[in-house]
Amino acid sequence: MDHGRVQCFHRTPHCGVSRSTYYNWLQPPKKKEKHDSKPVGRPIPGYCFTKQGKKVSDEQIKEWIMEAIAGDGYSYGYMKPTHHLRQEYGLVINKKRVYRLCKELDILKPQRERKSIYPGTETLQPPISYGKWISNMDISQGGISSLV
């Protein structure tokens, strides 16, 4: 059964469409699967090592971070706790891991707003005069024969 489809080699040269484009057009659109349920990237191991090779869990590291900032009333970044963990406890720990742990503990400072590299450049643009645009559009719509 044909279902209203015409054989490709008879119609596509007359329409100016390649055969692959025609058959691609006939296929129903593919549905994109949502991968929200699966985590992206490798799984989090949940531990790191000291310089002596001893395993330390992420929960212990979180406790150490909270002890380090317990006396202060303000939030920290992630670089100071990273330095503290390396110096005081001899951890071999990456700053990205400390950032993730601090984010889970909700102790990070609010991120600063980035300032423009070139402040004031938006005022250097010449003002737009819409009259010129309209007159150019009118001339182009009228054609060359009406101008002569």
Rank of each mutant, 00 (worst) to 15 (best):
residue 134 I to A: 10
residue 117 I to H: 14
residue 77 G to I: 01
residue 62 K to F: 01
residue 111 Q to Y: 06
residue 33 E to K: 13
residue 91 L to K: 00
residue 53 G to Y: 06
residue 24 N to S: 15
residue 25 W to V: 04
residue 114 R to D: 08
residue 59 E to P: 00
residue 57 S to M: 05
residue 130 Y to E: 07
residue 127 P to L: 08
residue 32 K to Y: 12
residue 18 S to Y: 06
residue 100 R to Y: 05
residue 9 F to T: 14
residue 10 H to Q: 11
residue 44 I to R: 15
residue 80 K to E: 06
residue 1 M to C: 10
residue 69 I to S: 05
residue 41 G to M: 08
residue 112 R to D: 10
residue 108 L to Y: 05
residue 77 G to M: 02
residue 61 I to G: 01
residue 140 S to F: 10
residue 136 N to Y: 08
residue 133 W to H: 08
residue 79 M to K: 09
residue 144 I to R: 13
residue 34 K to F: 06
residue 61 I to T: 00
residue 71 G to S: 10
residue 48 C to D: 03
residue 38 K to V: 15
residue 3 H to T: 07
residue 80 K to Q: 04
residue 39 P to E: 12
residue 22 Y to F: 10
residue 78 Y to V: 00
residue 109 K to L: 13
residue 114 R to V: 08
residue 78 Y to W: 06
residue 36 D to L: 14
residue 136 N to Q: 11
residue 136 N to H: 08
residue 80 K to D: 02
residue 89 Y to G: 00
residue 51 K to P: 00
residue 35 H to E: 11
residue 138 D to R: 12
residue 69 I to H: 07
residue 71 G to Q: 06
residue 118 Y to A: 09
residue 19 R to K: 15
residue 1 M to W: 11
residue 76 Y to N: 04
residue 81 P to R: 02
residue 49 F to R: 07
residue 46 G to N: 11
residue 31 K to W: 04
residue 15 C to H: 12
residue 148 V to M: 11
residue 46 G to R: 09
residue 45 P to R: 15
residue 112 R to Q: 11
residue 105 L to C: 04
residue 79 M to T: 06
residue 77 G to D: 11
residue 77 G to K: 01
residue 122 E to T: 06
residue 50 T to F: 05
residue 82 T to G: 02
residue 108 L to H: 03
residue 59 E to H: 04
residue 43 P to Q: 13
residue 48 C to E: 04
residue 89 Y to S: 00
residue 91 L to T: 00
residue 34 K to N: 15
residue 8 C to M: 05
residue 133 W to I: 02
residue 56 V to R: 01
residue 21 T to A: 15
residue 126 P to W: 07
residue 93 I to G: 00
residue 50 T to Q: 02
residue 63 E to W: 02
residue 84 H to V: 05
residue 91 L to C: 02
residue 33 E to Y: 06
residue 95 K to Q: 09
residue 89 Y to W: 06
residue 76 Y to Q: 03
residue 139 I to F: 06
residue 142 G to W: 04
residue 72 D to Q: 09
residue 14 H to A: 15
residue 134 I to H: 04
residue 38 K to P: 01
residue 81 P to N: 02
residue 42 R to L: 14
residue 146 S to I: 10
residue 139 I to H: 03
